[in-house]
Simulated assay, not measured.
Amino acid sequence: MADDPKTLVSTDWLASHLKDPDLRILDASWYLPDAERDARAEYDEAHIPGARFFDLEEISDARSALPHMAPPVEKFMSRMRRMGVGDGHQVVVYDGAGLFSAARVWWLFRLMGQENVAVLDGGLPKWLAEGRATEDMPPIVKDRHMTVRFQNQLVRDVTQVSAASKLGAPQIVDARAPARFRGDAPEPREGLRAGHIPGSRNVPFSALLNEDGTMKSPEETRRIFESAGVDLAKPVITSCGSGVTAAVLSLALERMGKHDHSLYDGSWAEWGMFPTVPVATGDA
């Protein structure tokens, strides 16, 4: 894999840059309740040296009833200042699942106009499997200002997604498992209808990953999108259960050199709750 500090870097790359003064490492581990894992407790026990903990639930829009929606600009800036992450830093984000929630934090940084941010390919599991060092002490943090330029084109709301569903463009791509996409499996969140956004295509985020949690090559991911019926000539809106794994698709698209993608932040947590928007079942 070619390392790209704006999308995806290897454990070898991170190990060789660990002492860089302008490097900031973020542990963005987050799990669904059924995983029965405590991300913060795991961070406190062992993390990559120098890593700060990025709390996906706390660094979100507290005014929204929807889960972990993108935070207001001011809140993101204040939290990053407190974490000592700011202008001139190269950020590397990882998670404890391999490649799961880290992509969401990568997307959040991009949404805030930060481009020098990458996901650690294979995450903490690969780092540990290679016998690399961890520590249990939090880093010493100094305030750092971050200049934020919100990138409105990277996020979509229910009205914009509804229009795309009707018009067939942009192309909507759903990262959930096939059974949830078809409506055969119940949603993990209560009160949601089962199925998918009419006209959307299904590319389960796990299909883009190798067995060790690393991301497949841009050539392979392109073939997977195309075989799912995604027209890559059109702009793409990524979606999932609550806007987390949709970002894995966004990361894959960015690595493929496809930059006209956005993420439906409310995702199925919002669409499945709205009685006035249509739901499709079965295959796309």
Rank of each mutant, 00 (worst) to 15 (best):
K234E: 07
D184Y: 00
F109D: 04
L192G: 06
D174K: 04
G86H: 12
T7N: 10
V105G: 06
H259K: 14
L120A: 10
T221V: 14
T214V: 14
G113Y: 04
E220Q: 15
R223Y: 03
P139Y: 09
S16R: 13
M137L: 10
R104S: 12
L32T: 05
D95V: 08
I25Q: 03
A247M: 12
F181V: 06
M1I: 08
G131L: 09
F54H: 10
L124R: 04
A41C: 05
K126C: 04
S101L: 15
S78M: 13
D22W: 00
K216T: 08
V158F: 03
A284P: 14
R180P: 03
R189M: 08
S165Y: 05
D61N: 15
W13L: 14
A233H: 13
G229Y: 08
T7M: 03
H47C: 07
H259S: 14
P33F: 00
T159F: 04
D283L: 11
H89L: 03
G241D: 06
D265E: 14
S29K: 11
S162D: 07
A269C: 11
L111N: 01
K142A: 14
D55V: 12
R37D: 05
T134Q: 14
T134H: 05
A177K: 08
L192Y: 01
V277D: 02
T11I: 12
F150E: 08
L249V: 05
H47M: 07
E211W: 00
P188S: 07
V73F: 01
V236W: 02
G282W: 02
W107K: 13
D265S: 14
V117G: 09
V230Y: 02
F225W: 12
A62V: 08
W127R: 15
D231W: 00
G243W: 05
K19D: 07
L124N: 13
S242G: 15
M1Y: 02
